[in-house]
Design a binder for these strands. Structure first.
Length: 858
RNA sequence: GCCUAGAUGGUGAAAUAGGUAAACACGCAGGACUUAAAAUCCUGUAAUUCAAAAAAUGAAUUUUGCGGGUUCGAUUCCCGCUCUAGGCACCA
């Protein structure tokens, strides 16, 4: 019979639908497994996603067979920028796009042969979910960090501690006092402001200081925004890393990101005031002092510069503020170091993006500055009128953390509304009773932020139109929304009880399922999502909502999938595209990279200009420097929708089936390493599956007593497969299956018992064919109810392999039985085989390593 | 620029408390079956050189990005480079 995967898979998909393999049973250990949930983009799941899902499904099926209660929920991170951008360009509401995408994703997920708890779905943009994201925001708003108890507490305890002071305060002073302590608080910080579009842009939408769409100028603008006071948790975030079973590189990266350092505070006294400087070393032997442009203390220079230089100075500051390239303003001083060298000041954007951001740094060497551009030279004496300048004697030390408080406001529509309204510019939270604060719905979307004009009516506790604000009953609402990580910070908790309307999560349920036993996702989230999520859990632990303070016990790092992307170059400020071979004629900062879809490529590298113009409306009237053979640049990089280099698995599954796809994905390479995608080797897997099928149909399979050889064969297979479950190296498991099948294929008669054991092991990886043969061989219960086969250790590790070498050259391989594994015995044996009696005297030294090697030096 | 990883045949890769480098596959070449193709099966396959030369086969040297070091022995440990990828606080 021919192997017809379409029939088999269709049949089992239907049957499996009716069985709840993940049904909870009493008195069992739990295993909570979770993949980072996807953002539902219009392009659907790509290969990178499926690798993670299939990987976790294999572990899930293994854990079921090991008698665990397993939990593998699925959800969608559906707020965020891409949907909003799509809305702006099409005029459709983001939720329409999101719903469509989710449908599509679900279809694909169901087509991977995975088991998941489909009843526990989460969609972060639905109010049943974001009600509780807002709830956490309000909890943060009403909490402060009590250093003495080393935990977050209700803000009332803070007020109690400062009773005398607090009740004398006026309203505004009360606000300022509380704002200083709240775990989410208001502060000025910089945003990327595009004056032309009059919107805030994400870093992702900017290249070389210009917007990617349209190439408009971007400036840094100060804005009052909500911040998370994550820095209060610095020490706890740092110390608890030790407990986690995470990859070393992720741990190290978090440690660096938190960045605890001891630094020293220097003070420089001048006749116009004091300048504070922090340094990594205590020594005063310095000749360069660097001031970061984003630091507040730059005000000192702004204030004191003479009028005739004021314009140039301020202009230059503005200029370098928005540049990614490094520029310096040089200021000569009359300050001397210990070696009597003159000290020079530099103001720069150099450290903008480095982890030492936002403090003043003293560097002892010139090398950094030598190569850079100095765009303004000043003199402290002449241009600032500062004559007296001295180091103060006292040097204090202090712990410095690289981690900063996180900006929590986004000036966008498609996110969770911040549940805050303002009375006389003082923020108050909306009562938890009245949550969710729903995102107002609009039909037409052109500039989304223009629609965000809503207010809070305190009498009816509902959102009303902005123009009704009277500041008596109707107050302005905060029209910013939360960032996308607000939802993903805590989603693992809600998965446990997603439909609960009264509580964020049921206490009994969270007690049982607790934190995630195995979390799977990409390393690109190391410093964002994973850190913020840890912070959020520590906070929820402090206020007694959950009983654990780390979200993810174990984390496995999924390797990034790379693929070829195509892009062309556009001249900035001009509607003109340049072909690859001619970009040498332009400077780098004159050009803008524009990613294009593969469908516009002809002859491997050339752009199909006609089609491109037709399909991409924005570029309708652009010029192309060449009309024929316009060459695109290619690069191998991360598979991502913004780079148009996504590979959709659908067509592979259609052509080869789910089993083959799953095996191929696993066999493709080590899970945690980055891989460049290709489909070339799938034939091997297709053949392998066919072989298994043919064994069933062409060989004689009898129920016999198991022979000794077969006992070794099958026990070693179980042993190796189980070992790889611990190491999580499933690509090797597949090759062990291949070796097993190769051996079995030579048999004329195959023992039914060992073939059934093989099928059980194989079913984790390739569910449908295993299940089909399992039934054809007379089994009546699904293979996934079968327990993991037991190993008989008697039949494992027959021999130790010794490599015998003379002067580091391999001469012999000896198989030594366990009972003979003694140094003297082995040397005697080798001497007899390799040496004559006279030659034994010539041996200078014998190097012996147990179970491994014997090296004769002559 | 800073931080974190990685680099092994024609290709995906395997092997690290230092001990046979290239398991398992893909591809390619040759063969069997077939009118033919597909499918399947068998054999070979890191490179170079030598011996042999009908063929089987045998031997030596070199080889894990580059250059050094430690060691009886290094893909694995240390130092210095090169290249590639990911992250750098508003992509998710």
């Amino acid at each position: 019979m021919k192997y017809n995967f379409k029939k088999i898979e269709k049949k089992w998909k239907k049957k499996h639908k009716l069985i709840d393999f993940l049904k909870k049973k009493k008195k069992k250990k739990k295993y909570y497994i979770l993949n980072m949930f996807p953002y539902p983009s219009g392009y659907g799941l790509h290969i990178g996603h499926t690798i993670g899902y299939i990987f976790s499904d294999i572990i899930l099926k293994y854990k079921i067979s090991k008698n665990y209660n397993v939990f593998n929920p699925f959800g969608f991170d559906s707020f965020g920028l891409p949907a909003e951008q799509f809305s702006i360009s099409t005029g459709k509401h983001p939720s329409i796009i999101i719903n469509k995408s989710i449908k599509n994703y679900k279809k694909q997920i169901k087509n991977l042969g995975i088991f998941y708890n489909f009843n526990s779905e989460i969609i972060t943009s639905k109010s049943i979910y974001y009600k509780w994201t807002q709830f956490i925001f309000i909890k943060l708003f009403n909490s402060w960090y009590n250093k003495n108890n080393n935990k977050a507490e209700n803000i009332k305890t803070l007020i109690n501690l400062n009773k005398k002071k607090f009740y004398k305060f006026k309203k505004k002073e009360k606000f300022i006092f509380l704002n200083k302590h709240r775990l989410v608080y208001l502060k000025n910080s910089y945003v990327n402001w595009c004056p032309y579009l009059s919107t805030v842009l994400a870093n992702d939408e900017i290249e070389n200081g210009k917007s990617i769409r349209g190439g408009y100028n971007i400036i840094k603008k100060k804005m009052l925004q909500w911040h998370l006071r994550i820095t209060k948790y610095n020490n706890r975030l740092l110390n608890d890393i030790n407990i986690l079973k995470w990859p070393k590189k992720i741990k190290n990266s978090q440690i660096k990101w938190i960045g605890k350092k001891k630094i020293f505070l220097f003070k420089i006294k001048t006749n116009l005031g004091e300048i504070k400087i922090y340094n990594k070393k205590k020594s005063k032997n310095i000749n360069i002092i660097i001031f970061n442009i984003l630091n507040n203390n730059i005000k000192f220079f702004k204030k004191n510069i003479k009028n005739n230089k004021k314009k140039i100075f301020n202009l230059t500051l503005k200029k370098i503020l928005n540049k990614k390239k490094n520029y310096f303003i040089k200021i000569k001083t009359n300050l001397y170091n210990k070696k009597k060298k003159k000290i020079i000041f530099y103001i720069t954007n150099y450290y903008n993006n480095s982890f030492l951001n936002n403090i003043y740094i003293i560097k002892n060497n010139y090398n950094i500055i030598k190569k850079k551009n100095i765009i303004l030279k000043l003199n402290l004496k002449k241009d600032f009128n500062i004559n007296e300048i001295l180091f103060k004697k006292k040097i204090k030390s202090k712990n410095y953390f690289n981690l900063k408080d996180i900006v929590f406001s986004r000036q966008r529509y498609w996110g969770e509304p911040i549940p805050i309204y303002y009375k006389n510019n003082i923020p108050y939270n909306i009562n938890i009773k009245y949550l969710p604060l729903k995102l107002p719905y609009f039909k037409k979307y052109k500039k989304l932020k223009d629609n965000c004009k809503w207010a809070w009516n305190k009498n009816i506790n509902k959102i009303v139109n902005n123009n009704l604000i009277d500041n008596k009953n109707i107050f302005p609402l905060d029209t910013d929304t939360m960032p996308s990580f607000a939802a993903s910070n805590w989603y693992n908790i809600r998965f446990i009880d997603p439909k609960n309307k009264k509580n964020i999560v049921d206490k009994k349920k969270i007690k049982y399922w607790n934190n995630v036993d195995l979390y799977i996702g990409g390393s690109e989230h190391t410093n964002g999502h994973l850190l913020y999520s840890r912070f959020c859990h520590k906070f929820l632990y402090d206020i007694n909502i959950i009983n654990f303070n780390e979200p993810f016990k174990k984390f496995i790092n999924q390797g990034i999938i790379l693929y070829k992307s195509f892009f062309i170059f556009k001249l900035k400020n001009k509607n003109k595209f340049i072909s690859l071979e001619k970009i040498k004629n332009y400077k780098k900062n004159e050009l803008l990279k524009i990613y294009i879809s593969k469908k516009f490529i002809i002859n491997k590298k050339n752009l199909n200009i006609k089609l491109f113009k037709k399909k991409e409306n924005i570029y309708k009237n652009y010029f192309f420097e060449k009309k024929k053979n316009f060459i695109c640049k290619t690069k191998i990089e991360k598979m991502s929708k913004s780079k148009f280099n996504i590979v959709n698995p659908n067509y592979i599954i259609k052509k080869y089936g789910i089993d083959v796809f799953r095996l191929y994905i696993i066999f493709f390479g080590p899970f945690n390493e980055k891989k460049i995608w290709n489909i070339k080797k799938i034939n091997g897997i297709k053949r392998f599956i066919k072989k298994i099928w043919n064994i069933y149909y062409e060989k004689k399979i009898y129920n016999l007593k198991i022979l000794r050889i077969d006992k070794y064969l099958i026990n070693n297979l179980i042993f190796k497969i189980e070992k790889n479950f611990k190491k999580k190296k499933f690509n090797l498991s597949i090759s062990y299956f291949m070796i097993f099948i190769k051996k079995i294929k030579k048999y004329k008669i195959i023992n039914k018992k060992i073939f059934l054991i093989f099928l059980k092991l194989f079913s984790f990886f390739s569910p449908y064919i295993s299940e089909e043969i399992w039934f054809l061989m007379g089994k009546k219960k699904s293979i996934f109810f079968e327990k993991f086969p037991k190993i008989n250790y008697k039949y494992i590790n027959k021999y130790y392999k010794y490599i015998i070498m003379i002067n580091n050259k391999k001469k012999l391989i000896l198989k030594i039985k366990k009972k003979n594994n003694k140094k003297k015995k082995i040397i005697n044996k080798v001497n007899k085989i390799l040496f004559k009696k006279e030659d034994i005297k010539k041996i200078k030294n014998i190097i012996y390593k147990k179970n491994k090697i014997l090296n004769y030096l002559i």
